[in-house]
Amino acid sequence: MILYLMCFFLFLVGVYGAITKRDLIKIILAIGIMGYSVNLFLVLLAYRTGALAPILEKGFNVPMVDPIPQALVLTSIVIELGVTALMAALAIRIYQKYDTFDITKIRRLQG
């Protein structure tokens, strides 16, 4: 249980970073941390003490780890890769236009 709470704590660390930091790169890293905490949570869900890799064979009667969360983690890593790459590209283009990574100086929109 304490491990799950630590995952949630890591998630909150990510949220805190994404909300309070002013640097575009730090925001991207904070979003990465949020993603890692969720991935960690999913992997912990699948873990069973002393279990084997889930390859089914006839007459195979040992406890196995749950394969579905592992597949979910792989997929979510791929998605995070896409989002991070896109946000890094946007950050670089913003730097070209504004010459800064500081979000308090990037305020041409009023909303």
């Binding site: 890769l81 790459a85 590209a89 670089i92 730097y95 070209q96 010459d99």
Partner: peptide, 17 residues
């Protein structure tokens, strides 16, 4: 895809634009 992402990110030049 990953190599192209790396290449395009690396080939940005800050002084452009």
């Amino acid at each position: 895809g990953l190599y192209l992402v790396f290449y395009y990110l690396a080939s940005f030049k800050p002084q452009e634009g």
